[in-house]
Amino acid sequence: MLPRAERALSDWLASGARGIGQLLIVKTGGFSLRHREDEARADLQVFRSPNDATELARLDDAENYRPLKTAPNLRHGWVLELADLPALRLALDLFYPGRLPALAAWEANQLATTPLRATLDRQTGMYRSAAKISDGEIDELVGRFCRSRGGEPGCLRTILWARDMTGARPSLRLPLDKFIAPVDQTERGEHVMPLLCQEACNLLVAEARKVVKDSSNRAERTGFEGSC
C-alpha cells in the first residue's frame, strides 16, 4: 500500500488538481514540476533530482532567502522532471515542508488544530512575552502577516486555527476564503491542493513578540512624556 501522503497526493491528482500552492504538477512519464506562472514558458532550466527542490525553494527571484516556504514568492525559470510518485512526494516535502502530511491528516479527519492563544501561551524563553498580545493586535497582525496576496511577504496557507478557545476567527481583516480549504489562495481560481496551516508558525509567534515589545515601548514613552 502507498504511504499515506503519497496516497493523498495521487488521489488529488486523479481528481484533476493542477498543483499545490504556486507549483504546477504535470503528469508526463513521471511528473514535471514548475511555477504555475511558467506554464507557457519554453526557456526553463531543467533539473532532475527531487533533492534539487531544496535549492529551488531557498531563494526568491531577487535571490533573497525565503524563510517561509509557503510565502507567495517561489522563484521562476526552472522545471523539475521527476521519475515517479515517491520522487514527487519528496520534492513537494522540500518545496512545501510538512504540507502533504498535514493534508493527508486533514482528509483522514485527524488534523488537530491549535488556537493561536494556546500556541502563544506555550512559549518559553524570549518568546514568552508574545502571549501578552491583545485581540485587537492579533487582528491587525494576522491580517497583515498571513495575507495570501499583498502581505509582508504573506502566505498561501489556509488558516485552520482559531484565535482562542471561543473559536473566534483570528482576523476579520482577511477574506473569508483565507479560512476555507481548498480555495486557491493565489486567486487564479484553479483546482489545487491546499496548503493548510493547522497551527501558527514560529515566524508569526516572533512577530507577535515584536508587536508586544513595540507597544510596551510606546506605552513607556507615553508614560514618561505624561509625567513631564
Binding site: A5, P67, T70, Y96, G98, P101, A102, Q198, E199, C201
Partner: peptide
C-alpha cells in the same frame, strides 16, 4: 525550530 517543517508539523509525520 525556526523553519519549516516545524517541530509541530513533525507530529503529523510517520503515519504508516
Amino acid at each position: 525550530w525556526k523553519e519549516e517543517p516545524s517541530l509541530r508539523d513533525a507530529l503529523l509525520f510517520f503515519r504508516e
